[in-house]
């Protein structure tokens, strides 16, 4: 075994990442998204190919909807890359949401590499028909 502490010291001295792994390249991209407003809800759809249900997190905190995802490496061990156009190793995007979202009613589904998040509007934001007296 190589002396890891020595190696680490060298790496930090050069300002390089403190790792021996060859898989140091993380490439987090902001996934493209559609947002649709219906009378009842906001629908957000995000392209996140390669991310599984287990590797995606959707959080709603202080008026921010944050979506994160991790992609399992597409290249298998011992394989030589010939073409590498798909580079995302992770996804991250945040949306600032205004008032009027029912924080207890947020639904998320994943299908064909597309994450769909449905944010229901709070009662006061829904359109209301006013009866004429």
């Amino acid at each position: 075994m190589t002396d890891k502490s020595e190696l680490a010291a060298k790496a930090t001295g050069n300002g390089l990442p403190l790792t021996e792994s060859t898989e140091v390249d993380t490439y987090v991209v902001a996934p493209l998204a559609d947002v649709i407003e219906t009378p009842e809800a906001f629908l957000v759809a995000l392209d996140m190919p390669g991310a599984t249900k287990e590797n995606i997190s959707v959080t709603l905190e202080k008026g921010t909807l944050r979506v994160k995802g991790y992609v399992e490496p597409l290249q298998k061990e011992g394989a030589t890359a010939i073409i590498r156009e798909i580079r995302a190793t992770g996804y991250s995007r945040a949306f600032t949401i205004g008032e009027g979202i029912d924080r207890n009613r947020v639904e998320a589904t994943l299908a064909d590499g597309v994450l769909s998040v449905k944010l229901f509007k709070a009662e006061e934001l829904k359109p209301r028909q006013i009866t004429i007296q």
């Binding site: 991209v29 902001a30 906001f42 991250s92 995007r93 945040a94 949306f95 949401i97 205004g98 008032e99």
Partner: peptide
């Protein structure tokens, strides 16, 4: 736009 943040709601 890749800053990853936008507003919807008030500023739509």
């Amino acid at each position: 736009e890749f800053d990853g943040v936008f507003n919807f709601g008030k500023e739509m």
